[in-house]
Design a binder for these strands. Sequence first.
DNA 1: TGATTTTTGTACCGTCTCGCATGAAATAGA
DNA 2: TCTATTTCATGCGAGACGGTACAAAAATCA
Lengths: 216, 216
Amino acid sequence: MVQKETDTSSPRPRGRPRAYDPGQAIERAAEVFWKAGYAATSLDDLVAATGMNRPSLYAAFGDKRALYLKTLDHYRDRNRALAAAAVADDPPLRVLMRRIYAGALDLYLSDPEGRRGCYTLGTATTVAAMDDDVRAFLAASFSATDRFFAERIRLAQARGEIAGDADADVLAACATATLHTLAVRSRAGAPRAALDRIAEGTVTVVCGQPTPGAGA
Amino acid sequence: MVQKETDTSSPRPRGRPRAYDPGQAIERAAEVFWKAGYAATSLDDLVAATGMNRPSLYAAFGDKRALYLKTLDHYRDRNRALAAAAVADDPPLRVLMRRIYAGALDLYLSDPEGRRGCYTLGTATTVAAMDDDVRAFLAASFSATDRFFAERIRLAQARGEIAGDADADVLAACATATLHTLAVRSRAGAPRAALDRIAEGTVTVVCGQPTPGAGA
DNA sequence: TGATTTTTGTACCGTCTCGCATGAAATAGA
DNA sequence: TCTATTTCATGCGAGACGGTACAAAAATCA
């Protein structure tokens, strides 16, 4: 009764309980891939980062590549959730874009040394040339970002927030391109102020000059 | 007297002549880095690709990292030359941007399987997180591209080619961002037609709608 | 308490990796 | 022809790598 909530999540499996949290292990593993890249990360690095031992890691996630694919899925889901949260209150396009870029930069610079960059672009871009699944993941990720922006831009055009004569797909590609340039520039060590300027510049290009007197 | 031209380039060193061409070796090495990335490329891969043997490779270029840095310099010089050629006849901004993007895509897709991407972004972005020199190289490369575009955009504004009220640095960042998105999208396998559309979209955003009746 | 099941921890195997040691080959000078 | 110099070519040894076998440990069920 005290642990009624565990009934749905864990029906108490028979054997010895695992000493690690799978979700946390994936995040720890991603941390290592994020810094060193996929190829330069050894299994020993992953073992040290997750605190698991080698056979547990293998039993839980498969080999190194399978674990890497899981980390990609993990961050894709995380980004989807962020995007969903950003549109939850149906904000104007200008507000939405600022949220997306600010949220992305928060993540890209969330490092004591502040040059993390985007996990997917920072690691998967290199792997994509030799790995069909990673390449397909990348392509799907880009396409989803394009569609997300295009939908919101079309909505803003229909609402009269922004001019309706521009090609929404072109503007969406610009918005995605800015996300990409922020991703690689942050990994190259660019300071936040410069990246904020780039983001705001794209907001202006897509949405037009903000009306200075307006409140929001 | 017959070989007066060799006096400057090669004073005929004493020993056995080298059996490889250093410039070609660097290009062959870059080819391998391009496909597999820096970390996943072994010395044996480089030996096989260059046709050199291991000690010769060490004597000529140093270790793997030193050779990689040389390939980065090589493609930076190559891109500088391309940019210089693109502005040699002082074209209008719209023509210049189309040349830059088309030339970039020619390179990014110059592969039988057509998903090479940009050499620098495809390999150095991953390495940058752990290697200060590579990170500095990346930052310098981005900055040079920004300055190149900004200068030409300011020139176009001064000439009245494009509207003069927009911030040239913002437009330059958009132009660079498009180069970055083309780089990663081509590596993700995007078809040329889609990439051409993105490039032309940015040209339109920066330069305005082309006058349909005008010739060039 | 004893049997069963799952995970943990250690230790190991074959392979690949880097960097170098050693000697042969090819050229210029004498 | 003989010596000096530079590069080539083969091969080697110490270590890291990815992946796995095996037994002890910790839990549930009976």
